[in-house]
Amino acid sequence: MTSALDITRAVNPPRAVFLNFPLGHQTGRPHQPELQRQIVRAAMRAFETIESPGTIVELPYVWDANDRRWEETDYTEGFLPERPAKEDADTAEAARRTRFADAK
């Protein structure tokens, strides 16, 4: 699966399926199971239909037919959130692990 066509062309894997969605949504929008199912099903179909090594199947789905601005801003300056301070990240990590350890 890929949403970065130029990177995948460079790597040249044996089989790939391209979805033109913002990074972080390679198998669809959140909480849209039917869309996700169609995308994943298309990827499974590609295992059978791709016969030539290096083929990239392009899926027809569009992120937002009325707004393509994400294509201008995705992965540009200011796109990634600031990394949390180490202490904050460590606190969150400890809380997460404690929560699940307690639930065992």
Partner: peptide
Amino acid sequence: SVWHFGYRTEDAASDHNCVFPLARMREL
């Protein structure tokens, strides 16, 4: 849960199936 520095993880955190379609694969 999701831990990654290289992409915006909010959507994947609220529905892992955006990048890890485990529930969809179980359905298939």
